[in-house]
């Protein structure tokens, strides 16, 4: 190879996996594995990645995978970590990799327990903002106004997105960060960094989902980028409580640039859009104070 690449050239994700065209969660896994390396075990609760990891004995990732029940990815990861340590393996990184359903809702208790005990695991939530694997039902991660199969009315989801980052931050994790595939270098760096830290670590990835968000599959990276540029998904990290914004979008684009490219938000009125813009503006005033 003669080209110097901006992210590691090693490839932990195998072609032939079963993800939909343009899957943001798969792109995220590709970058995560570049940052984590092969000395990693993935613990995957029920989610899209249960399928994407492949039917045994085939696997679409080059690391070991443990499938866990929906509610207990974090607890299973803790057990795997303790098991490895008792066999004399301190080096292998144990990563729980769950969707928003298995993290915001069903796996929250196990996650909270692991964070509270400061277990030596990395928990990753790839947040595609609904139960996509079972056919787009609303989760705690679904933003207000989004269409899902279980919020089909004109107003969409009637509750705001649960502030999971704040819930995790309240546990005082060793490391916490957000990431999204358009910023691949940032994501790889965060996984490398998280891997090297001991104790409980948490990364939330915004993973665009073409069938769930209802957009053309080629727009995955563009939407991921727009989520950051509009300020709707800020990229930040927090080490031992020290908060740092990774990217200031400067003059933020209007939230409509992100929302209107997705048919799940087609029914938003101009007032709805203005309300979302006001929320984003207020959130950024908060960020400016914290950073």
């Amino acid at each position: 190879m003669t080209v110097k690449t901006s992210i590691p050239a090693t490839e932990g994700l195998s072609a032939g996996h079963l993800a939909c065209q343009g899957c943001g969660a798969t792109l995220s896994m590709r970058y995560a594995l570049k940052g984590l390396g092969q000395e990693t075990v993935l613990v995957i609760p029920a989610c899209c990645w249960t399928i994407l990891a492949g039917p045994a004995p085939m696997s679409s990732v080059d690391v070991n995978v443990v499938h866990s029940p929906f509610a207990c990815a974090a607890a299973t990861a803790c057990g795997v970590k303790h098991g490895l340590v008792s066999r004399g393996d301190e080096a292998t990184c144990v990563v729980a990799w769950g969707g928003d359903g298995g993290t915001f809702d069903i796996g929250l208790q196990a996650l909270s327990g692991a964070a509270d005990r400061d277990e030596d695991i990395l928990y990753v939530c790839y947040d595609n903002e609904a139960y996509m694997n079972t056919g787009i039902q609303r989760s705690g991660g679904t933003p207000r106004g989004a269409w899902t199969m279980t919020t089909p009315g004109p107003a969409g989801a009637d509750r705001p997105k649960k502030d999971l980052d704040a819930i995790i931050a309240a546990h005082r994790p060793r490391y916490q960060a957000t990431a999204t595939p358009a910023y691949a270098e940032d994501m790889v760096r965060k996984f490398k960094k998280a891997r090297a830290i001991k104790g409980f670590r948490f990364i939330r990835i915004l993973a665009p989902c073409p069938p769930g968000w209802k957009y053309e599959s080629g727009d995955t990276v563009a939407l991921s980028r727009l989520a950051v540029q509009t300020g709707m998904f800020p990229l930040w990290e927090s080490e031992e409580g020290r908060f740092r914004l990774n990217l200031s979008p400067g003059k933020r684009k209007p939230v409509g640039d992100f929302l209107r490219r997705q048919a799940r938000f087609r029914r938003l009125t101009a007032e709805d859009e203005a309300a979302i813009q006001a929320q984003v503006d207020a959130a950024w005033e908060d960020f400016a104070k914290r950073a």
Binding site: A15, G16, Q38, G54, P57, M58, S59, D62
Partner: peptide
């Protein structure tokens, strides 16, 4: 019942999608 890495999905040629 654990899947071990090392048997890639490459045999599954998804080009016909």
């Amino acid at each position: 019942p654990i899947i071990t890495g090392g048997t890639p999905m490459k045999a599954n040629k998804t080009g016909h999608w």
